[in-house]
Design a protein around this nucleic acid. Structure first.
Lengths: 100, 100
DNA sequence: AAACAATATCAATATGTATTGATATTATAT
DNA sequence: ATATAATATCAATACATATTGATATTGTTT
């Protein structure tokens, strides 16, 4: 019996990567941020009002998402605009679909 | 600006459902259990040895997965065999892919 | 330079979830 | 009936993560 995700080292570490990705997106605010940014680029002040979540908390979630390269940002004056990193997200989704 | 996942009630509750699903599978042992069961039906005593996770903890994770209908079980003497509920899992993956 | 607006950071706390150890349950075998 | 094997449950603890409140940073406007 060769169970891939338990015996194979490469597959095992891929699985850990997926788990980390899932931990990041399994939070309501963060998943919502991704959904919002799927439709359009947006600045923080708009995002946190859409979420109905305080500014600092939203900022923190954005940092987590960015730390995982699921989103990227550009500065424009006072504002910081975030946008979705569709390629990275697709990569993880593909991997997840392969595993499940 | 009509951001679906924030304004639309139905979409919003779908999102919460996805989050719950993601919370369940974003745990290494549980995801691994799903991967194992993808390949074959298996009893608890085999599963926990594959995972290298104690019996009671494995049993607990199985309960969580079953509570979400991601797996189902049948009894055969002393042993309990678990198998993947592929249809439910596919349903959630499809939904997730729609959102991201 | 001072005031303001948008964003980020940080420490403290709260909340949730995984893990452990001990024990209960269920079915089988002697 | 007793002993054993497989699984499940439960309370206690440990650990991780989200949230809050206060403050810092950065760029803009006057």
């Amino acid at each position: 019996m060769k169970i891939k995700c338990c015996k194979n080292k490469k597959v095992g570490s891929e699985l850990k990567g997926i788990v980390d990705f899932l931990k990041v997106i399994s939070e309501e605010n963060r998943l919502r941020i991704l959904c919002i940014l799927k439709e359009q680029e947006m600045c923080v002040c708009e995002i946190w009002q859409y979420l109905d979540s305080p500014q600092n908390l939203t900022s923190h979630h954005l940092k987590v998402l960015k730390g995982f390269s699921l989103i990227s940002s550009r500065k424009d004056g006072l504002k910081v605009f975030y946008k979705l990193n569709k390629i990275i997200i697709k990569k993880y989704l593909k991997l997840l679909n392969k595993f499940l």
